[in-house]
Write a protein that binds this DNA or RNA. Structure first.
Lengths: 195, 195
DNA sequence: AACAGAAATTGAGCGCTGTTCAATTAAAAA
DNA sequence: TTTTTAATTGAACAGCGCTCAATTTCTGTT
C-alpha cells in the first residue's frame, strides 16, 4: 500500500513511540517486543522498521521519553518545594523510579552494542536531568566550593542511583534493608555537610 | 543414548557451568544462550535442560559462581592489606567489576520473573560478600555505634555500586566523569567520618 | 550370552524474537 | 487516465527458550 492519509510520518513515529512506551511500562524490558508494538498501532513489523532503524533505535527513543518525563517530574516537585530542596530531590528521584518501575529500569537494562555511542538527543536529555540536580547542589554549596558542583553532582547521583537500584532489583530485600530512601538521603547529607 | 561413562551427573553440571561462565564472560548477558553453551560442552540442548531447569536456573548458577569469585577476590586483597582497609575494599570492588565486566554486569542484568524469590544458595553467597564488608565497617566504627554496622554496610555497598555501574554502563562517560573510584571512596570516607 | 529394565541423551518441533526486502498497493503527478 | 513515486506489507531467515516422544546406551538378571 502507499501512504495512508490518516497518519503522517511524524504522527506515525509518535504513535509507535507512545505504544512502545506503554508496552514497556506494562511488560518491562525483557518482555518488550517490536512486533507487539507494531500490532498495537495496527501496522506491520515492516512499517515499524521503516520508521525506526532497529530495536536499539526504538528502545533509545522510548528511554529518551522516559528521561524527559523523569526530569519534568522532578522539576514539578522542586517548584512546590519548601526549604529542604535536597530531600525533595532524593524523594522525587525515588518516587519516579518506584511509580514507573519498568520504564525506569529499562533505561539501565538496555545496553548499546560494544562501542556504539549514545545519539545526541539521548545524551542531551540525560545531561538536562543532571543539570537540574547540579543547580540544587550548587545552591547549598559554600561559594568557594562552587567549582566542585559538577563532580559532586555526578557522585551524588551515583549514590542515590545505587540505593534506588538495590531497592528495586531485590538486592535490598535480600539483605533485609527496609529504609533505602532514608539511607540515600543520609549519605547525600553527609557529603554536602563535608563540603 | 544412555549414560555416557565419560561424565557423571555432577561432572556434567560442572562442565556446563564452566562453559556458561566462559560464554557469559565473552558475550555478556544479551549475547548469552543456553544453546551455545550446550554446543560448547558437546551435548544437545535437551541434556542441558535436564541438568538445569531453565535459562533462569542456569543464569542464577553462573551468577552465584561469579559472586563467589568476587568474594574470594576481595578477601585475597584484604589479606595483604595495610592500614587503609576501606580503600582496599572500594578498590577491589571496582577492580573485580572492571576485570570481569560482562560477568559482573550479568549479575544485575538478569532479573527473575515477577515475584520469584532467589534460591537459598544464591542468597547465601550474596550475604557472604556483604558480611565481609560489614566486618570491615564494624572495625572502623566507634564501639557505641557498632549496632549501625548492618544498615551502614548496605548503604555503603549501594553507594559504591552506584558509582561502579555508572562507570561501566557509560553514564559517567556521558557526563564526562573521569574519577569514579575516587568519588566513591570519598563518599564512603565521609559517611564513616560522620559516624 | 541373551534379555529386560532403567536411565541418559537426542533433536525435531513449537512459538517466539529482530530483521530484511521483493512484491504489492495507494496516493500524487503528468 | 496513465505513469511515477512512495508507503506498506508479510513471508522468509536465523536465532532464541523450552518440551518430550523416540532412541540409545548402560546395568542387572537370568
Amino acid at each position: 500500500m502507499g501512504r495512508r492519509s490518516d497518519h503522517s510520518r511524524a504522527e506515525l513515529e509518535e504513535l509507535i513511540l507512545a505504544a512502545g512506551h506503554t508496552l514497556l511500562a506494562e511488560t518491562g524490558y525483557a518482555g518488550f517486543s517490536a512486533r507487539e508494538v507494531a500490532k498495537r498501532v495496527g501496522y506491520s513489523v515492516g512499517t515499524l522498521y521503516n520508521v525506526f532503524e532497529s530495536h536499539d533505535d526504538l528502545m533509545l527513543a522510548i528511554n529518551t521519553r522516559t528521561f524527559v518525563e523523569w526530569a519534568a517530574w522532578i522539576s514539578a516537585r522542586l517548584e512546590r518545594a519548601g526549604e529542604d530542596r535536597i530531600a525533595v530531590l532524593v524523594d522525587s528521584y525515588f518516587d519516579f523510579a518506584t511509580a514507573n518501575r519498568n520504564l525506569w529500569m529499562a533505561i539501565y537494562d538496555h545496553r548499546l552494542p560494544e562501542g556504539a555511542a549514545f545519539p545526541d538527543r539521548y545524551a542531551q536529555d540525560r545531561r538536562t536531568l543532571t543539570l537540574i540536580v547540579e543547580q540544587e547542589i550548587a545552591r547549598v554549596l559554600p561559594p568557594e566550593r562552587a567549582h566542585e558542583a559538577g563532580p559532586l553532582t555526578r557522585s551524588l547521583l551515583a549514590t542515590v542511583h545505587g540505593h534506588c537500584v538495590f531497592a528495586l532489583n531485590g538486592t535490598f530485600a535480600l539483605l533485609e534493608e527496609r529504609h533505602p530512601r532514608d539511607a540515600a538521603l543520609a549519605r547525600v547529607r553527609e557529603a554536602l555537610a563535608a563540603a
